[in-house]
Design a protein around this nucleic acid. Structure first.
Lengths: 254, 254
DNA sequence: TGTTACCCTGTGGTCAGACCACAGTGGTCC
DNA sequence: GGACCACTGTGGTCTGACCACAGGGTAACA
C-alpha cells in the first residue's frame, strides 16, 4: 500500500482544508507561490502544479503584476472548469456524445417544466434577449450556435441552481464542435436555423404560459430532433465508431 | 486585448487536438514529458502543469518507473475528476450544498423511474451487493456512508449513462463530509442507519417491480428526508450562513 | 503646490539543470 | 537454467535564475 503523498497533492489538500475551515473565502488571495512553498516545505514548482489544477477547475484566477488584483484569487466560477472537463472527456472518449445528449434531455426537460411550474415565475429576460440576438440573419453558424448555447444555459440559470447551470454549460460546450459539424452537414442549414429559432420561441412561450407538459415535450423535441438530424457517421469527426441511438419520447431520456 | 497563450495552455490544447483527431486514444501513452517539452518548444515544467490539469480531470494516470505501465496513460475516468471538481467547488462556496441536493433529487428521481421502466430490466446486482454489505451492523458511520455513496452511484451506473454516473459520483462525493457531520448530529444515529437501509431496499424493490412512480417518490423521500433531518446550521461546518430550503415533493426538485 | 515621470518591488510565468525513486529490461554470473 | 544485478528511461521534485507585468511610492519638474 504505497502512501505516496505527492507534493502537489499535499498543497492541494492544504488549500482545500483552508477553504473548508473558512481561512480562505471567495475573493481572497492565495498566498504568493513562494510563500506557500516555503510554508509547506515544498518546491515552488509543486505549488504551481496544485495552483494549475485549481485554475483548471475554475476555482481561482491568476494574474501577473502587482496590486490588489494581482496574484491568485479565489473566484469559484464552476462553469469554465466543468466545460473544460466535459470537453476533454468527450475528446478522450470518456463521455460518449450520445450520453451527453441523453443527459441534456434529462436535465433540460426537468428545467423547462420546473420553470413553467415555478411561482413566482422566474425572469426569462436573459433568454429573451438571446432569442432576439439570434433573429439576426447575418449570423454565421458558429455565432448562432454560440448564442444557442448561451440560451440553453440561460434557461438553466433562471432556475437559480448553480450546479445545474454549471452542468448545462459543460454539457453544451462539450458538444459544441459536434453541433457545428452537424449543422454544416445538413442539406439546408438556413432552414435548420429557422426551425431552431421557432423551437426556441415555442419553448419560452410554453414556460411563460405555465404549460409544463408542453415545455417538456418541446425541449425534448428540440434537442433530440437536432441530434437525430445532424448525427450520422459521416458528420462526426470522432475516431470511434458511434451508434446513433433512438431518442424517442417513449424511451427513458437517459 | 491581451493574447496570452500561456505555455501550459499551449500544451493542453495540443493534447486536446491530438485526442480529437485520434492521434491519442484511451490506453495510449502520452509522450515523455521531456520529449513533449522539446517538441513544443516549452519547458518541462510547463508540460508538467498541463499534465497535472489532465490528471486532475481524471483524463490520465501517471506512474513512475519504466515499462509498459509507466508514464502518463490516457484513462478517461471522469468520476474522480468530477468528484474533485465538485468537492472543491463546494468547499470554495461556488456550489451551495442545497443546490447539490436539489440536483441529486433531479437526477436520481429520473434515474430511478427510468430504471423501473426500462426493458429489458437492467441488472441491479451491484446495488444489491452493496445493500447486503450495508446490512452489517459493525460498520462505522463513515463506512456505511461510503457504501451508501457507492449504492447511489451503482444505480446511476445501471442506467448505462456514463455522464450521469460521473455526475452522480461527483455530487455524492461533494457532500460526503456534510453527510457524515449530519449523521453525527442526529439524536439516534443507529436508528437513522436502519431507516436508510429500509429506504434503500424499498427503492430497489420499486425498481425491480417496475413501479416507476413509487421509485421516484421513494428516492425523493430518501434524499430529501435525510437532508432535512441532518441539515441545520449547527451541523454544518461551512463558514457561510446557509438556509435550509424546503424540499417538498410539490416544489420543483431543482 | 500640483503634476508628471520614473524606478522599485512583488507578483506570476517560464526555463534550465540537477538529482531522486522507481520499475522494467537485459545481460551476467553462478 | 536460474538468480542476481547494473542499466536505462520514466515521472517527481527542488533550486536558481530570469522575464513581463502592474501598482505604488518617490523624485523631478512646472
Amino acid at each position: 500500500m504505497p502512501v505516496e503523498p505527492r507534493a502537489w497533492e499535499l498543497v492541494l489538500r492544504h488549500i482545500e482544508r483552508e477553504l473548508l475551515d473558512g481561512s480562505l473565502r471567495p475573493g481572497d488571495h492565495l498566498p504568493p507561490e513562494r510563500t506557500l512553498a516555503a510554508d509547506l516545505g515544498v518546491g515552488r514548482s509543486s505549488v504551481r502544479e496544485a495552483v494549475r489544477v485549481l485554475e483548471g477547475f475554475g476555482l481561482i484566477r491568476t494574474q501577473t503584476g502587482s496590486g490588489p488584483s494581482a496574484g491568485a484569487i479565489i473566484v469559484a466560477t464552476p462553469q469554465g472548469g466543468m466545460s473544460a472537463l466535459m470537453r476533454l472527456q468527450v475528446a478522450a472518449q470518456g463521455f460518449p456524445v450520445a450520453d451527453i445528449v441523453k443527459t441534456r434531455l434529462l436535465l433540460e426537460t426537468q428545467i423547462a417544466s420546473g420553470l413553467a411550474e415555478a411561482s413566482p415565475a422566474p425572469s426569462l429576460d436573459a433568454a429573451a434577449t438571446l432569442l432576439t440576438a439570434m433573429d439576426d440573419d447575418g449570423l454565421t453558424p458558429a455565432e448562432f450556435l454560440a448564442l444557442d448555447a448561451q440560451f440553453h444555459v440561460a434557461l438553466a440559470e433562471a432556475s437559480g441552481n448553480q450546479v445545474v447551470t454549471a452542468m448545462m454549460a459543460g454539457l453544451r460546450d462539450a458538444v459544441e464542435s459536434y453541433a457545428l459539424a452537424g449543422l454544416a452537414a445538413v442539406a439546408d442549414p438556413h432552414r435548420m436555423l429557422g426551425r431552431l429559432r421557432a423551437e426556441h420561441h415555442g419553448i419560452v412561450e410554453a414556460i411563460e404560459t405555465g404549460d409544463a407538459a408542453a415545455a417538456r415535450i418541446r425541449v425534448h423535441a428540440h434537442i433530440a430532433g437536432y441530434y437525430a438530424e445532424t448525427h450520422s457517421p459521416s458528420t462526426t469527426h470522432s475516431p470511434s465508431a458511434e451508434r446513433a441511438p433512438e431518442l424517442s419520447e417513449e424511451t427513458p431520456t437517459w
